[in-house]
Structures are given as C-alpha cells and as structure tokens.
Design a protein around this nucleic acid. Structure first.
Length: 414
RNA sequence: GUGGCUAUGGUGUAAUGGCAGCACGAGAGACUGUGGCUCUCUUAGAGCGGGUUCAAAUCCCGUUAGCCACCCCA
C-alpha cells in the first residue's frame, strides 16, 4: 500500500454527524439575515494580497504573520482571504453599488485562512458568516447589526453570553488618543510586561486588552478613550446605546475592548459565551474603509461569526426527518415497487433502498442498527394484494397499505 | 512565532525492556418472510524516521500531528 495522505496542519474534515449542527446554525443565520433584508454576496477566496494589506492593516498580525500568500504563474501576488470584509468592500466598490441605492445590506458565509498555530477553536481554515451594511452612518445601523447578532446567538439556544461594546474613535480623535496612550506608555514603559513593550511600538491600542494584572493596574491611571472621543463620536456612541436600549439588548461597555484589525472606527463589539475562552463573534464600524480602498466616503458596519467556535459548543439538534427504509424481497417486487416509492420522494420523504438481496431478517437487523423507525416491505405476499407491508420498528406494529393509498397514508401520518 | 503536555485497532483503554490484550464498534452467521436479547466466528493497531539493546509500545534523539498556556483572533 502507498503512503496515506492526511489533512495538512490546522485544517479538518467536517463529517456528516458533525455537520448536523453546522447546517442547523447556518440555516438559522441565513433565514434571520434575510428577514432583515440582507442579501447574499459571494466573493472569491483568493484576492490580490494588497487588498488585505490596505484594509486589515500592514502592521497587524493577520497580515504580517498569518496570511497565506503566494505568487501565481504570472507573478501576481495573491493571498487566501484571512477575512471577508475587505473582499466585500472591494466588490461593493468594483460594481459601483453605491450608485444604485444608498443602503446596501449583505451577508456572506465561507472559509477564511490564517496561518496561525492551531488549537481548539483555532484553525488555519475556519468558517465565518457575517453581515455588512453600507451607507448607514446613524447609530441605528450599529444597533441593528448587534440586534441581528444577538438574535442569532439566542436563536441557536445560547443563553449565557455577553455582548461587549466600546468606541475607539474616528479619524479625528483616534490618533490623538493613540498618541496620548503612547506617551503614557513610554513614561511608564519599565512597569509594563514584555509583550506590552512590543505592543507600544507596533500596535499601541492593543496594550489596552493585555491580560497582565500589572499592566491593567497601570492603565487605570492612564488616559481613557472615553475622555478623548470627539463630539461626533460621543454622539454616535450615545445614539448606538439608545438603539440598543430600544431593541432591549443587554450589553456591557468595555473601555478596554480593541480589535486587531486597523479599519475599525467608532463602535467595536464582541460576543463571549460564558465559560468559553474565545469570543465567537466580533465586529464594528469601518467608516473609512470604502474610501481607503478607492471608493467614495461611505460609512459601513458589520460583524463576523466564527462558525467553528459556535459549533464546538453547540449540541446536535434532534433529528426530525422522516426516513423510510424500503425492502424488496425479489426482482418482481422491485420492478413494480420502485415507481410507487418514487412518488414519496416527491413528497419530501427520505427513502433509502438497500437492494442487496439479503434475507428479510438481515434487512431488519440493519435497519434496527441504523435506528431507522419505519420500513416498507414488498415481496410476493404483498404484491398479490397490491400493497406494501408497513412496519414501525419502534412499537413493532405493521399494516398493509394499498399502492393507491400510499400518498394519502403519508399525508395523514406526516 | 515562544514554552509545555500527549500519541497503542474505527472508538475507549491495558500491559514497569521479554508472545500487543480487553471492551465497544463494524462484518458474517446460529429457523432463507420479521429486528432489538443471547451465542459463534471474522475484522483491524504502536504517527513517521533514526538510535540504545540479545530484545523497544515501553529508554534516547529527531520529526509530524493534536491539545494547553502565551501571542493573536472568529
């Protein structure tokens, strides 16, 4: 035998049993998104690498360390998408959608790629579902995407979770605050942990959510983002919170919440399931990104859900599909039974035929093992009466059903 | 990217350098038109590569993968 080939590091197969909850969650999300007027958009998995450098940020970890990047045969520098927002914005601009109407609402779903060190809930190919709203400046839109996220999380059965929210300012006030914080850091640099010393140079804001107790203590006396928000940002923040109250969404303001992508402005938020280490969803507003990627100045807000993390916590839903196992005992029964059985498929009943010429006993054994509850048996005896023998494996009862009555039988029993 | 832990049939596990065993699962069968219980048989295993040794699942080195903490993020 030749050497077996296995999945490469950090990626995995999702097998049928596991996928039941994935499908459950995905269906919930899609119907919810649609009910709010969001439309699906599908964007490529590969893009010009520059797209992510210009949006996510050249100095973020995602772009610097975690991006799958390669040259194609013509020497173009291509990246596997590490997230979807950049691509959606690119598409939005490329198709001049802003010329069609003011507000656009999109949802997407698919795999993303980051060259991270794998761990539970952290994969190199992972799946995100998310939404983006373009053209809405008002805090209402921030509120609406958070409402949507909240509805999704609760609709799949989670009760114990927190939505954390913060404002990190805009073009005008974010740099002022960043500089203040930077100064404060250099004054006290020796007291901070080694990681923070590095952050102070590359990504100052990230110091804020350091887990080190000492760092947090020092930060308490440092500049607070809330004191530096400009008038516009303050107002937007109040507006957003107002809508959250109207939608009655419980949230927790966390002044230390910052996010690792450069494009965020004003509102940022995350969802944490209690007892879980990783956050399962995150998002925020990005009012400058469309402009930055070559489009007009159009504000936007959105979020992404980490489906792998959601499904890791989720239990498989109860199976409720009706499955009928059909047993044919001879050739003649098979020939006559197949067209009738096919009528049932048209009625959305799942039909499994295993025509392996076994004994009835063995058929039933198989059916029992697979925990299938209903069986049709067709052999000489039944055929002479133009009927199927219907057997319920759960209570052992059985009855003859005439060929002509078969669809009505299921009409009554559905 | 840094540090640590782990690795035996499909799954869960046992064997303290000396014959790789058990349970579950899976397949076939024990009245060829009636399953679940029981019984019989079958199936299949040391991640990979080196080293030490008469002898390695066991000790050593490397590697790969998973997990944990960090980092980062979904």
């Amino acid at each position: 035998m030749d050497k077996e080939i296995k999945t490469i590091r950090g990626v995995r197969d999702l097998l049928p049993e596991e996928l039941e909850k994935w499908q459950f969650a995905e269906e919930k999300a899609v119907s919810l998104f649609k009910s709010f007027g969001f439309e699906e958009i599908r964007i490529p998995i590969i893009e010009e690498a520059a797209l992510f450098q210009r949006s996510v940020g050249t100095y973020t970890d995602i772009v610097q360390k975690e991006m799958y990047i390669f040259s194609d045969k013509k020497g173009r520098v291509i990246a596997l998408r590490p997230e979807a927002t950049a691509g959606v914005v690119r598409a939005y601009i490329e198709h001049r959608m802003f010329d069609v109407k003011k507000i656009h609402k999109f949802y997407y779903s698919g795999p993303m790629f980051r060259y991270d060190r794998p761990q539970k809930g952290r994969y190199r190919q992972f799946y995100q579902m998310g939404v983006e709203i373009f053209g809405g400046e008002n805090g209402f839109y921030d509120g609406e995407v958070i409402l949507l996220l909240d509805k999704f999380i609760s609709s799949i059965g989670f009760k114990d979770y927190i939505i954390e929210i913060n404002s990190i300012g805009c073009n005008k006030c974010k740099p002022i605050y960043t500089e203040k914080l930077s100064n404060y850091l250099s004054e006290n640099l020796s007291s901070f942990c080694n990681d923070c010393k590095i952050r102070a140079q590359n990504n100052v804001l990230r110091v804020m959510d350091c887990k080190n107790q000492t760092c947090q203590q020092i930060l308490k006396d440092g500049p607070n983002i809330n004191d530096f928000l400009c008038q516009d940002c303050k107002q937007h923040k109040e507006q957003t919170y107002q809508y959250l109250k109207i939608f009655s969404i419980p949230y927790k303001e966390n002044p230390y919440l910052v996010r690792g992508l450069d494009y965020y402005t004003k509102t940022v938020f995350e969802v944490k399931i209690s007892g879980e280490e990783n956050s399962v969803a995150g998002g925020g507003r990005y009012d400058n990104l469309v402009d930055q990627l070559g489009g007009p100045c159009i504000p936007a807000v959105g979020f992404a859900i980490g489906m792998d993390r959601i499904c890791e916590i989720l239990k498989n839903p109860e199976k409720k599909d009706r499955i009928i196992w059909v047993v044919f005992l001879d050739e003649k029964s098979f020939a006559e039974g197949i067209p009738i059985i096919d009528k049932l498929r048209k009625k959305n009943i799942k039909i499994i035929i295993d025509y392996d010429k076994r004994s009835l006993k063995n058929y039933l054994k198989i059916v029992n093992k697979q925990k299938i509850e209903e069986v049709f048996i067709l052999g000489e005896n039944e055929l002479s009466q133009k009927s199927f023998l219907y057997k319920n494996m759960k209570n052992g009862t059985q009855q003859l059903i005439h060929f002509n009555d078969i669809t009505t039988f299921f009409g009554e029993n559905l």
